[in-house]
Simulated scan of single mutants.
Amino acid sequence: MLGTLGDRPLGAKDAEAVARALDLDPVASCMVSARVEAYGLSPRFLGGELWTAGEPVTSLAFSGANLMPLIGGAGDLELFADRALSTPRICSSIVGPADLALPLWERLATVWGPPREIRDDQPLLALHGYPVIAPDPNVRLVTMADLDRYFPAAVEMFIGEVGIDPCAGDEGRSYRRRLAALISARRVFARFDGDRVTFKAEIGSMSRKVGQIQGVWVDPESRGRGLGAVGTAAVAAAIARQGRISSLYVNSFNAAARRSYSQVGFAQVGTFATVLVD
């Protein structure tokens, strides 16, 4: 048995088995794969623990700032729930394939609930290769010199998407550091019209195979001009140039965004769900 639940989190000796498990669905596992590839399996560096209820190729979950079930059946989810409830909660959300995330939440809700919000239908999209429309030539990498101009747009996007002000508590210092790290990694893109950001997006996670786009936002005064589609195409083209698959997930009710992503060439490959926990 590898990394038996209740014994220990998965560690370095389980690396090959974990890699095989994550490769079963590289798009759905991108967020976890990116961390494992960058930091290994040590919880100290990974920013969380990888759990299995038996062997990683048949059950796997990540527990950190998010609780992410990746593989498993009903019995595995019971064990993951027991493990999550055995210590104080550290995650702010449960996110992952809907057929795993929602049943896991049902097992946790009586203790962790009520949730702040449940987004139970988030199409997981992927684009293999280049976009089918021309990218916006005015979308470019954001530099550190742009951070002061970029930051307000990122905050507005975050509040609209997550419903929380990222500046609360520390006046935005931690969120600003997160953005600065992404900028340094050349994973932040924007269109600037003068000093105003009219489109923005980030590659939030980057594994060897997949780049997951997040934080897509168009300035309200600039909406209706198609900037979301051609801007996202610019980010997807940058990912394709690196030989990676572009991916993102979107709320099913966001019809405008779904139309934009379809225009770019994205197709649905799965369904995610997110439970935001207070």
Score class of each variant (00 low, 15 high):
Met31Ala: 15
Ser207Cys: 07
Ala180Cys: 10
Val250Asn: 07
Ile203Thr: 03
Thr143Ala: 12
Met144Ser: 14
Ala237Tyr: 07
Val57Ile: 02
Ala180Gly: 13
Leu102Ile: 02
Ala267Ile: 15
Gly48Asn: 05
Ala181Met: 07
Ala81His: 06
Ile239Thr: 01
Ser247Leu: 08
Tyr175Ala: 02
Gly204Thr: 01
Arg35Cys: 03
Ser42Leu: 13
Ser42Val: 09
Leu141Val: 03
Lys200Tyr: 01
Leu67Met: 12
Leu41Arg: 05
Val27Leu: 04
Val139Ala: 02
Pro103Glu: 04
Pro43Leu: 10
Leu41Trp: 02
Arg89Gln: 14
Ser262Leu: 12
Ser59Gly: 03
Arg258Ala: 08
Phe45Thr: 11
Tyr39Cys: 03
Arg20Phe: 00
Phe80Pro: 03
Arg223Thr: 14
Pro103Lys: 09
Arg119Lys: 14
Gly64Arg: 08
Ala15Leu: 13
Pro56Cys: 03
Gln263Ile: 01
Arg44Trp: 13
Ala61Ser: 04
Arg178Pro: 00
Glu161Met: 12
Phe62Ser: 10
Val197Lys: 04
Phe189Lys: 03
Met144Tyr: 02
Pro103Gln: 10
Ala98Trp: 11
Phe253Glu: 12
Glu16Leu: 12
Cys91Ser: 14
Ile213Glu: 04
Tyr150His: 01
Val142Arg: 04
Asp121Asn: 15
Ala53Met: 03
Val32Tyr: 07
Tyr249Met: 11
Arg149Gln: 12
Gly160Leu: 11
Val95Gln: 12
Thr4Met: 11
Gln263Cys: 10
Phe80Met: 11
Tyr130Asn: 04
Gln242Pro: 03
Gly47His: 08
Leu70His: 05
Val264Pro: 12
Leu10Glu: 00
Ala238Gln: 05
Glu78Asn: 09
Ser63His: 13
Pro43Asp: 09
Asp195Leu: 09
Pro9Phe: 05
Pro115Met: 10
Glu221Asn: 09
Gln122Trp: 08
Ser252Val: 15
Ile183Arg: 01
Leu79Gly: 04
Ala28Lys: 02
Lys13Ala: 08
Leu276Trp: 15
Ala255Met: 14
Val264Asn: 10
Met206Arg: 14
Arg225Cys: 07
Asp278Leu: 15
Ala101Cys: 07
Lys209Thr: 07
Glu49Arg: 15
Leu24Gly: 12
Tyr261Arg: 12
